[in-house]
């Protein structure tokens, strides 16, 4: 049976990296006595996969992982058992039974929504909403992505599906999170700051992932994003 687990990661847990989060869940699944399936071979490992890695320093209320189990009594009990073995800042939000043919979490990811807020107070700028609108109205938003090996020219505009100020003085966005066109919220924010002439230190704001989505639309159709937990 394939199970999809949605969880939140916040507070001090934002300092735990992706690999360590995986290790945390491998141990948590054992503590919760979940009858998880193991791979074959000399050193079997749990069949477990994560949707989209979350960078260190980011919080999230929309993380996903899939596991396969041999048996279970009920979805509710599994959620309860897992929550019993969590730590502060790690919380199981939902557990869903997936159809057998469902794509795994990682392959399903196509978009994610984020919120950016100042850690203390609101953004120290005036005209937040107007600046965001002006920024988003640009035809293209070129971005130079430098990695150790290469320099890549991107157009962010293609991958920003929504961008807005939220009601509490923060910024919200929905961006491409697929393996081919993933856009980091910090990239968007960096360009926005440049556009509006703001100077904000990276440690002054907090990025929070709100949800991870898959696209139900067929090829050529407009996006139809639904949260990963709502795949039926």
């Amino acid at each position: 049976m394939k199970i999809r687990i949605k969880f939140a990661k916040y507070g001090v847990m934002k300092f735990i990296g992706h690999l360590d989060t995986m290790r945390f869940f491998q141990k948590a699944v054992r503590r919760a006595n979940i009858d998880v399936k193991y791979s074959e071979g000399f050193s079997p490992h749990q069949i477990m996969s994560f949707a989209a890695p979350l960078g260190v320093g980011m919080e999230s209320y929309g993380e996903y992982m899939d596991i396969e189990v041999n048996s279970m009594d009920s979805i509710e009990n599994m959620k309860e058992a897992l929550n019993q073995v969590m730590v502060d800042g790690m919380e199981i939000l939902s557990v869903t039974l997936l159809p057998e043919r469902a794509k795994n979490a990682m392959a399903s990811v196509s978009a994610a929504s984020y919120r950016i807020r100042m850690k203390e107070g609101g953004f120290p700028v005036c005209g937040l909403k107007a600046s965001i609108e002006g920024f988003y109205r640009q035809e293209t938003i070129p971005y130079t992505k430098e990695t150790k090996k290469s320099v890549l020219e991107l157009d962010l505009k293609q991958g920003i599906y929504e961008l807005d100020a939220d009601d509490e003085g923060g910024i919200q966005m929905l961006v491409n999170a697929s393996s081919s066109g993933n856009i980091k919220p910090s990239m968007v924010f960096e360009k926005l700051c440049q556009f509006a002439g703001w100077e904000i230190s990276p440690s002054a704001y907090q990025v929070t992932r709100l949800e991870t989505y898959t696209n139900l639309a067929g090829e050529g159709e407009p996006h139809r994003f639904v949260p990963l937990s709502e795949v039926k």
Partner: peptide
């Protein structure tokens, strides 16, 4: 430690406690 410091040092998990 502030976020700023924790993001700057190697393996911040060494300093935050909260382990199972």
């Amino acid at each position: 430690l502030s976020d700023e410091i924790l993001m700057r040092v190697e393996k911040p998990a060494r300093y935050i406690g909260n382990e199972v």
